[in-house]
Each structure stands twice: as structure tokens, then as C-alpha cells.
């Protein structure tokens, strides 16, 4: 039971971390390597608003999510748009931007134990004999709410439908009056906002450190590779597979081995099914 609950929490955490990355890649085929940086940016921004500017907790959370999403959109609109269609340049540029953001925080001295966000609701609760703190339950709740609202957004709003249209067939959607650049800006803003949401609900579990940014990037990419790049169900499957296997490893073999398991899963995925669990690899199709 213990394993089940913590596995569930861990899986939802991974899904939340990966969803922003997966959204951006799915819509605009852009691997946003600044994802981890945007994640800790949201964390530090919330901390700053809360402790330096004295805004209340809910206010600073919303403010920082909005700011992160604006920054994410701006990164695409003003920087990455110039290298679109060149995957190598996109990756290098976004990674460099991400590192610049993260190392800027390190330089400003955001590396001590002092940087942590308070949990939304303090204390813990006992479910079926397992003691679990409220924050973890909130994470599950937020995760489910995010998935549901994303589904509603992409299936029942005009903007959401245009995102899916671009993801499926760029040229056909361009001909139906959807502008890919604007859609990509929206996708990046949304992906960043998702990173922000993930940050503010997950970070209260521990300290905010610069290393978290790198770890989140690795985790997000690992989930996407294992589940299948550009597939929503794949993100969930990858998150659950990785989440549960990590908890199982920690419980039965030792917490040190978690990273080894991640590495092993990635290598196995690439060897056995390179397109990921639920990813569809595009077959080479010339115009018939």
C-alpha cells in the first residue's frame, strides 16, 4: 500500500514535470531544453514574491506562473523563432538559454538551504495505514486537474484545437488559416506555465536548488523518451512506469539505484522500441 501510494505520487510528479516538455515537442517539434530552467525559475520567482515583496502565497504562485509563461513565450517569439526548423540549433540555443538562466541563479547565490516554499496545507493524513502529507495529496489532485483541463482545452477550445491541428499536420493547418508561429508561441507559453505549475506544487516538498533544474530536465526527457516523444498517453505511461519502478527500486534495492534504473530503462527503450512505449515512429513516406 505504501508503495502504491508513493508510487502514484512519484508518477504524478513525473507526469507533471514532463507534460510541459511533451506539449511543446508535440505541437512544434521543438525540444525545449530550457524546460528545467523555467521550472526552477517559477520556484525562485514564487519565493521572491513571497519573501521579498510580501505578496501572499496564492498571489505569488499565480504571478510567477504567469511570468514564467510570458518568459517562455518570449523565448520562442524573440529568440528560438530565428532558428526554427533547424533541430540542432534549436536544441543548442534552448539549452544555452536554460543554462544561462540556471547559472544566473547560482551566481546570485540561490544555493543555500534557505530557499524553500511552505506546503499549501501543513500536516499529514493517514490513508489505509499510510501516513501521507497533504502536499503530496494536493500534487495528485493538481496533476489530475491539469490532465483533465488540458484534455478539455485541447478538445473543446479553438486555440486548443489549433494546437492539435498543427501537431498533426502542419501544412494542412496552415492552409486552414492557423499560423504556426503564433501556435508555437502559445505552446511554449503553455509548456512553461505547466513547468511553473509543476514547480509550485512539487517544490514545497524540498529545497529549491539549481540542480533541481537539471534533474527536472533529465526526468522530463527520460519520461518522454520512454513513453514516446509527442504522445500524450506515452507521457502518462512513461511517468507511471518510471515512477513506480523508482519507488520499487528504492524500496527493495536501495534509493541509490534509482538513477541506474532510469538509465537502464532509457537504454532498454532505445534498443527494444526506439519510438517509445506508445510513440509512433513516422514511416518514411514519399508523396505517393
Amino acid at each position: 500500500m505504501n508503495i502504491f501510494i508513493f508510487g502514484l505520487v512519484n508518477s504524478v510528479i513525473l507526469a507533471l514535470m514532463a507534460s510541459g516538455f511533451a506539449l511543446v515537442y508535440g505541437v512544434s517539434r521543438l525540444a525545449n531544453f530550457a524546460h528545467g530552467a523555467l521550472y526552477i525559475l517559477a520556484g525562485f520567482a514564487t519565493w521572491l514574491f513571497l519573501n521579498r515583496l510580501g505578496i501572499n502565497y496564492i498571489g505569488s504562485i499565480f504571478l510567477s506562473i504567469i511570468i514564467v509563461s510570458i518568459i517562455g513565450g518570449a523565448i520562442y517569439r524573440f529568440l528560438l523563432i530565428r532558428v526554427k526548423g533547424m533541430p540542432a540549433s534549436e536544441i543548442i540555443a534552448s539549452l544555452a538559454i536554460g543554462i544561462a538562466i540556471m547559472e544566473l541563479f547560482r551566481w546570485r547565490g540561490f544555493i543555500s538551504e534557505a530557499y524553500m516554499l511552505p506546503p499549501f496545507v501543513a500536516g499529514s493524513v493517514s490513508i489505509a495505514g499510510v501516513v501521507i502529507d497533504w502536499q503530496r495529496l494536493i500534487i495528485i489532485g493538481v496533476g489530475l486537474a491539469m490532465m483533465l483541463s488540458l484534455w478539455l482545452f485541447t478538445h473543446h477550445t479553438k486555440v486548443g484545437l489549433s494546437l492539435r491541428a498543427i501537431a498533426q499536420d502542419k501544412h494542412a493547418s496552415m492552409m486552414s488559416g492557423i499560423e504556426p508561429d503564433r501556435t508555437a508561441v502559445i505552446a511554449l507559453a503553455m509548456g512553461s506555465a505547466l513547468a511553473g505549475v509543476a514547480a509550485v506544487v512539487i517544490l514545497p516538498l524540498g529545497n529549491i536548488t539549481v540542480e533541481t533544474g537539471y534533474m527536472v530536465l533529465i526526468d522530463a526527457i527520460a519520461v518522454c523518451i520512454i513513453g514516446g516523444l509527442g504522445s500524450w498517453a506515452g507521457v502518462l505511461a512513461g511517468a507511471f512506469l518510471l515512477g513506480f519502478s523508482r519507488i520499487l527500486t528504492a524500496a527493495f534495492i536501495g534509493p541509490h539505484w534509482q538513477m541506474v534504473v532510469v538509465l537502464l530503462f532509457i537504454i532498454l527503450t532505445l534498443i527494444l522500441k526506439p519510438s517509445g512505449l506508445l510513440g509512433r515512429q513516422k514511416e518514411l513516406e514519399e508523396r505517393v
Binding site: L79, R82, V83, S89, A93, A100, E103
Partner: peptide, 16 residues
């Protein structure tokens, strides 16, 4: 640590 920031920015700038 700011050096890393500098050369990431140089890299991003030159690539873009």
C-alpha cells in the same frame, strides 16, 4: 559562476 552564464549567452546569441 557568472562565466558559465556569459558563454551560454554567447553560444545562444551566435547560434540564433
Amino acid at each position: 559562476p557568472l562565466r558559465v552564464v556569459f558563454y551560454s549567452l554567447i553560444l545562444a546569441g551566435l547560434v540564433i
